[in-house]
């Protein structure tokens, strides 16, 4: 009996390290969070608007622009708006 248990244990996959639920593709409003071509979505999670909830900021390669998706609570994010700098859409130079 003990041998059988040991054999079954050896055959059963043992989880290694942290386990994650299946990935969820995030939405902002009703649309999936998406960046412009050629891609390279770079997320960060900060309370940008100071309402006590962390928001999603997503950088992209094209023009070095960033989208802000405000956290509306209950797991919902608002539709994205561009991060602005001095009245213009913020851009990081040297990315095109």
């Amino acid at each position: 009996m003990l041998n059988t248990v040991m054999l079954l244990s050896a055959l059963m996959p043992i989880p290694q390290g942290p386990q994650f639920a299946p990935p969820v593709r995030l939405k902002g409003g009703d649309a999936f969070v998406a960046v412009e071509a050629p891609g390279f979505a770079a997320p960060s999670w900060h309370d940008v608007d100071g309402d006590g909830r962390k928001d999603l900021v997503v950088g992209q390669f094209r023009d070095g622009k960033m989208h802000l998706f405000k956290n509306e609570g209950d797991g919902k994010l608002a539709a994205g708006t561009w991060i602005m700098a001095e009245g213009n859409i913020a851009q990081v130079p040297g990315v095109w």
């Binding site: 639920a21 969820v24 969070v33 998406a34 960046v35 071509a37 891609g39 390279f40 979505a41 997503v58």
Partner: peptide, 13 residues
């Protein structure tokens, strides 16, 4: 063709 990128949430269980 459309090159783009998404953001995925992987919840640790």
């Amino acid at each position: 063709e459309q090159m783009t990128g998404s953001v995925w949430l992987l919840r640790q269980q």
